[in-house]
Design a protein around this nucleic acid. Structure first.
Lengths: 124, 124
DNA sequence: AGCACGTGCTTGGTATACTTAGCGCATCAC
DNA sequence: GTGATGCGCTAAGTATACCAAGCACGTGCT
């Protein structure tokens, strides 16, 4: 099994899928047991998944995504299962772009948000 | 098993994913061994998958989809893994989504930005 | 001091995804 | 005929996704 390395291309943005799930769970202010219950998985398993010990299967991913109010596509692309590296969709969905495009924000509000965002990401 | 099946219709209600793969494979004039080799799985396993005995995991699905020149989305939706029926709009939440997914922001920073964003858009 | 309840994590086991070796049947050559 | 090469499938095993029970630590309450 040491050679394969072909199917899971080690996404890159997040260090791992587990980190992404954990951050999303904390963002939603859910404990492991709460999220596990909603997603209908066991809390120890969720623990292992978040620590990168196991790679969850697709329906578990979908379950977690739904529990976190994320789309399954977002989850899959984070898991590196949706090679959206191809042929269409140049949606460079950065935060600044999304802010600029949002019709519900005034110009001042956009400027404020972008300024805060830039201050947060100043060192990267 | 045999209790509340919530995530996947265990077996029997499928009837489509294996048939779908088989028809796509035959449409591409590939033998099982050929497709299995391209998709980097074993040919007996592909056989079982096409006959509906096993439910392949997501990266195998992606591999097969690539080998058949299909998009992963098509494959997942055929597998019933993508029809996220409960999830929210997401086109309406572009900013929040972009914030949540940005790897350069900490959890606290995300919470701050989202809170500010929601306060801006509270009355719309 | 206790105890009750919260958190995340470890252990040990079961279910299932997946592989390697091999079977049986065709269709070509010789 | 025999054998070589293609096909799809079976059988038996290994790897891993997943679960139930319980551990270790923290926090608040009496």
């Amino acid at each position: 099994m040491s050679d394969d390395e072909e199917r899971t291309p080690a996404s890159g943005a997040w260090r791992s899928l587990g980190d992404f799930i954990r951050s999303q769970r904390e963002l939603a202010n859910l404990s492991m047991r709460q999220l596990a219950e909603i997603a209908k998985i066991s809390n120890p398993y969720l623990s292992q998944v978040e620590r990168g010990l196991y790679k969850p299967s697709a329906d578990v991913l979908k379950s977690i995504a739904n529990a976190l109010h994320l789309s399954a596509e977002t989850m899959y692309s984070q898991a590196g299962l949706l090679d959206n590296t191809g042929t269409r969709d140049e949606s460079h969905h950065g935060v600044e772009h999304a802010i600029k495009v949002d019709p519900r924000l005034s110009t001042d509000q956009k400027e404020s948000l972008i300024r805060i965002y830039r201050s947060f990401t100043a060192g990267s």
